[in-house]
Design a binder for these strands. Sequence first.
RNA 1: GUGGCUGUAGCUCAGUUGGCAGAGCACCGGGUUGUGGUCCCGGUUGUCGUGGGUUCAAUUCCCAUCAGUCACCCCA
Length: 442
Amino acid sequence: MSKPTPISGFPEWTPAQRMIEQYVLDRIRSTFELYGFAPLETRAVEPLDQLLRKGETSKEVYVIRRLHGDPDGPAGDDALGLHFDLTVPFARYVLENAGKLAFPFRRYQIQKVWRGERPQEGRYREFVQADIDIVDRDTLATHHEAEMPLVIGDALRSLPIPPVRIQVNNRKICEGFYRGVGLTDPEAALRAVDKLDKIGPAGVAELLASTAGASEAQAKACLALAEISAPDASFADAVRGLGVSHPLLDEGVEELVRVVETAAAHSPGLCVADLRIARGLDYYTGTVYETQLLGYERFGSVCSGGRYDNLASAGNARFPGVGISIGVTRLLGLLFGAGALSVSREVPTCVLVAVTNEELRAASDSVAGALRSRGIPTEVSPSAAKFGKQIRYAQRRGIPYVWFPGADGAPDEVKDIRSGEQVAAAAGEWTPPREDLKPLVS
RNA sequence: GUGGCUGUAGCUCAGUUGGCAGAGCACCGGGUUGUGGUCCCGGUUGUCGUGGGUUCAAUUCCCAUCAGUCACCCCA
């Protein structure tokens, strides 16, 4: 068999990287639970028609089918696709289980998602998202939109990663403003403005004219709005200064003020109102979030989301929601690529119990058992090689302690192979310093 | 999905104007008859991403393909 090769866009980490990933996931999860979000996992597949409601993203959906499915039979597996985010499955789940859920319903969901994109650094076809959402029945209070950045701020701050900046906007501001200046296709205008960073003001003006039918004055006004950015409510004055009025615009400004002020009170500098932010899936109807990892801005957002009022509705029941999702795989991929994350050892093992000779392996096994019973991750040396070799086995893996069973009734000894210090110890009592018990991620 | 660049040892990379494949690090053995790391001596790295084609001869040239990366697209 020839050597297997990777599959494009489906990353597989090393054990050390996986330990870091698990650490990161644990921290994120515990922050989510600290805010009272309940755990949920949904199936990997959704009916295709559900997934395709988003238009453009449809090209990215992986469809599943049975190898020997009957192409002429009734629609079965081939009507299913892998979910490409966690919000759409969640909306479906809420509709399906509305009777069992208490509203407002707060849940987190940490799962893989799949998108058939062309991969490059920080872009994958299979990746993990850590998602929180809050949905309510009929109406959703706007303060939930202000809560999202707080959770994310806490979660990401608990990790050994560079600081982040959450950029917030509100689609009502854009849409209200565009309508206020007389544009009739706010969607097109939004798409044009979104390219500001990439093609510059002149390019956007051109695009606004060609795709949204904007006059020179209208384009200028849209650009002026997009250039507004402030870490506090002062953005609202800047918007008013543009002299455009529309009910939707006022509503959006009010909501965004609240998000920004709440965030500023909780953690200054975390959030910034940035009126050029337009992206995200097109089901967003109000607040939208994007998150830059400082120093890695060019790789795009590592955490995005927003408010959606129309994603989940059945008959006359409506479930507006707001959610945000951490791109865990992108975050890790970027930091791994930069060598910016490390772990103190490649295995969970804290203690390696040396084996004096194979006849005495049972003695080492029993030491290991005693240590494990007190929660100390321990392995027994794979061979009774010279102690130098056994120490090196530990050293190469970053295992901090080697345990030597005492010969002929002499006490056992444990050696810290980093310092070389070796002391007598009893397996039923010795405990490593707290910081050595588990691998340290930094 | 479109286009560009790249692919040589576990890692970082040399190299062959087409003629038996190299260095450093890492790894293994010894110096050191039961305690590693430093040091010294010695040793192994490999379908030259994969499959075709041209050629007496291809790692080198050509085509395809896979993977990585960049831009577009989209987005975590």
